[in-house]
Computed example of a mutant assay.
Amino acid sequence: MQVTLLGTGDTTGTPTVGCDCDTCQTAREPPTELRERLRDQGATITAAGGVERTRFSVHLRNERTSESLLVDFSPDFRQQFLREEVSLPDAAIVTHIHFDHLDGLGNCYRLVDDITVFAADETDPQTGKSVAETVTSDYDYLDQISVKARAPLEPFSVCGFEVTLLPVVHPPLVCYGLSVEDPVTGAQFAMTGDTCYDIPAETRAELADADLLLVEALVPADLCEYHPLGGNHHDSDGVPRTFGTKHMTREGALALADELDAERTRLVHAAHFYPAKEAFAEQIAVDGEQYDLS
């Protein structure tokens, strides 16, 4: 299983359009030592020499079947696929209906002949529809897509992988993490999806012991003081592991990673609100990182 991190940023990405904060400036013009370290890690450095954290998406390639599975349709779909030169997906999964995970689906027009999109069948009290139903209704003009609803916590097969949608907590909408396993090699990829720290026990059990784990880590915990709702799910030292109600802090993500004990963990969905000196720490992923799991 080859995993390519197409997009590792939050809703606005880094650098953010129109922003001249220190973090965005560092992303546009990274110091030489940072640029070299990121390249050594396999990360993307743009032609202009900058660092990218575009909106979230992951590409999974099954070398055995020569098929590709896409997790979430980033609005930066075109840029990501041109930049990384990965194959167009044979199938895809949508974790939730926020625009930064879904609105790239329109790129399938004239690019693919047909693609199956899997999404959860669980009705969202907020919308009155499941994720699968929302994708179907919002993209009914795309003849190329076929939406298949799947029940959370029930494995299904796609692209030679065994995939399980895992409920997480991302109010006010339903949202899902993933476990993706190659039944032949035993390689496992897992991701929390967008979530607060309060992930259900059954989901934690499915996420545990992966070869590669992606954990969302929007901001450092000390930024909770600037959120109207503050922080939540504090540890024994009073450090919030949730930023507001719907995203994990870096400290919450690291605590969860320790519990889940993956072979390798990367922090994703990072915002440009990280201070510049912390935003490109080795633990926080940037676009273009690629991992071969076997």
Rank of each mutant, 00 (worst) to 15 (best):
M1W: 02
T4G: 08
G7E: 01
T8E: 08
G9D: 10
T12A: 14
G13A: 03
T16K: 15
C19V: 13
T23Q: 07
Q25D: 14
R28D: 05
T32H: 13
L34E: 04
R35P: 11
R39N: 12
G42Q: 07
T44M: 08
A47C: 08
T54D: 05
V58K: 01
V58C: 02
H59Q: 10
V71K: 06
V86S: 05
D90N: 13
A91K: 08
A92H: 13
H96K: 08
F99C: 09
G104W: 12
L105N: 01
C108W: 07
L111I: 04
I115T: 12
F118R: 04
E122L: 14
P125H: 10
Q126N: 12
K129I: 08
V131T: 15
T134H: 12
S137Q: 11
Y139K: 09
L142P: 02
P152K: 13
L153A: 09
F156N: 03
S157D: 15
V158F: 02
V169W: 10
Y176P: 05
G177S: 07
L178G: 01
L178C: 03
S179W: 00
E181D: 04
D182M: 07
P183L: 04
T185I: 05
T185K: 05
A187G: 07
Q188C: 12
F189K: 06
M191F: 05
P200L: 13
T203W: 02
A205Y: 03
L207W: 01
D209P: 01
L213F: 01
E216V: 03
D222H: 14
D222C: 12
L223F: 13
C224I: 09
E225C: 12
H227E: 15
L229G: 10
G230F: 01
G231C: 02
H233Q: 09
H233M: 09
H234E: 06
D235E: 03
S236W: 13
R241L: 10
R241T: 08
G244E: 02
E251R: 00
L254V: 13
L256V: 01
D258T: 14
L260R: 00
L260A: 00
T265E: 00
V268Y: 02
A276H: 10
E282Y: 09
A285L: 02
Y291P: 04
D292N: 15
D292Q: 15
